[in-house]
Design a protein around this nucleic acid. Sequence first.
DNA 1: TTGACAACCGACCGTTCGGTCGTATTTTAC
DNA 2: GTAAAATACGACCGAACGGTCGGTTGTCAA
Lengths: 190, 190
Amino acid sequence: MKVMRETIVSTARELFRSKGYAGASMNDLADAVGLKKSSLYVRFPNKEALVPAVLDLTLQETFGDRDRGSRQWDVEFADVIELIATTLTDRGRCVGLHLAYGTSDETPIAKDAVRAFFQAHRDHLSSILSRAMPADVARNIATDTLARLEGATAFVAIFGEKDAMKRAVRLSIEEAKNAAVATSLSRVSS
Amino acid sequence: MKVMRETIVSTARELFRSKGYAGASMNDLADAVGLKKSSLYVRFPNKEALVPAVLDLTLQETFGDRDRGSRQWDVEFADVIELIATTLTDRGRCVGLHLAYGTSDETPIAKDAVRAFFQAHRDHLSSILSRAMPADVARNIATDTLARLEGATAFVAIFGEKDAMKRAVRLSIEEAKNAAVATSLSRVSS
DNA sequence: TTGACAACCGACCGTTCGGTCGTATTTTAC
DNA sequence: GTAAAATACGACCGAACGGTCGGTTGTCAA
């Protein structure tokens, strides 16, 4: 009857996503995976330790087995943000953002994990974009893309609307391509 | 020693903003306003009833005493989104979004209040924009503007970065102006 | 078959949660 | 001046919280 660690982590992710850090209880998690609360403490020292595990799993699923650099930058960029957008649309909420809002100085480990989570997202996107534009431009576009996706998720969460997410994806891809064109033009003129 | 209702509501807003619905307790609120918990229940029937009060206050402060329609649409649009952006940057979080993520079917009154809150934001922005463009375009731009602001707030919350918010404001204003120009051009050509 | 080890559970701890109620105190109205 | 209404409080409730601990069960290698 052994319960997989990944089962616990991905179930914890669902709970954090829908109820937030404070709203999700260890008892909820235990019930959801078919264990008793005390058994959870064999695998995780405390509730806070679930947060890095949850975010690491999500990062792995998003950027893990991606064939990095083997394709055109624009295809890879479009692929990864469409993957993120689809996940956000299907789940209706972003675990990372819910945990970002739900953690504070009282949960420093969770807070650090959230920072690392978003930093990793930005770094990944930025590294794809910087194949076609200067690093500072890439970083800003990566940031704005993530912001747009997070904001569009709010409209999925509140109204169930998916249009905003579609526009966010389209506009982000356009913005990246425009920046790439502007970069190549300025290279020619200089 | 009477404590103003608005004091309670705006203090509740701070708590909801920083700790979320589940994370903010009635005891926290009582301590913060200098009352005992039982005294709060004289003014509010339960915790959930604080949510509409908090969001109504915020709406009032954002759109309340604005001289509607007396100025150019673009000035008014820029003004109101700069007010929102400044508030979000200063506070580091959006109460509305934190409550949107923190409420569920178990708190229907709060959930409805959140929907009304964001709908009111969208309606207000949309009505300003529709002075210069078709209603459907205005609605989409209003939505995307709010999404951008919410997303940029995440980067303030997580990294303390304010640049993303500045870009969000600038890009939203540009997008609105471009749509207005496109509208007037298509009117001429038809 | 047995010993060892990992997985799991029930009972329990102190604390905090949202919420209620009877009562004391202050303000207001007549 | 006095009655009524508003305001605040202390004590309390059952439930849920995160977390601990001693003991039982299941698995597997020797």
